[in-house]
Amino acid sequence: MAIPIRVKVNGQVEALEVAPDESLLSMLRERLDLTGAKEGCNEGECGACVVLLDGKAVNACLVLAAEADGHEVTTIEGLGRPGALHPLQKAFLAHQAVQCGFCTPGMIMTALSLLLENPAPTEEEVRTAISGNLCRCTGYRQILDAVQAAAQEMRAGAQGRRP
């Protein structure tokens, strides 16, 4: 029994027929070939699958594709492009916050959701915000530094744009 949905993914409207038990993660990865969001556990325990749903970080493995009907999804693929990277992407590179990279898309999307809500988080707030995103490689230190650096750049950018 397929459910017709319309969902805006990275700015583009997609009309899809999804299964009732299909997760948003599976929809993004299998139907739309947006494989940036990863499956690390499929149980909401690792954060590798985090995407933004109407600007808020969600574990895409726990959201049903059908629930995204009429909403807006942003994945890592919708963030920046070479030459026009998002400040978070730039900061992750500059601070060597990426190792194997498997946690990176989820980590960046969680951080983005935090910075949209709280443009000047303390380190404690960053730690708490990304505590559901497991990374086995980096020890998190350079990730924490990268998020702070990106926050600063985003604040500067926001100020710069003001008339």
């Binding site: 990865r29 070939d33 947006l34 494989t35 940036g36 969001a37 990863k38 499956e39 994945t75 890592i76 693929e77 963030l79 920046g80 492009r81 070479p82 990277l85 992407q89 992750f92 590179l93 500059a94 060597q96 990426v98 990279g101 498997f102 990176t104 898309p105 960046i108």
Partner: peptide
């Protein structure tokens, strides 16, 4: 401190791991 040469593909979601390969 040379930046990671495979960083760009990892921060843009371009990097393909086993389950990403169709």
């Amino acid at each position: 401190d040379v930046l990671r040469v495979d960083g760009l593909e990892k921060v843009t979601g371009a990097a393909r791991y086993l389950a990403d390969v169709k």
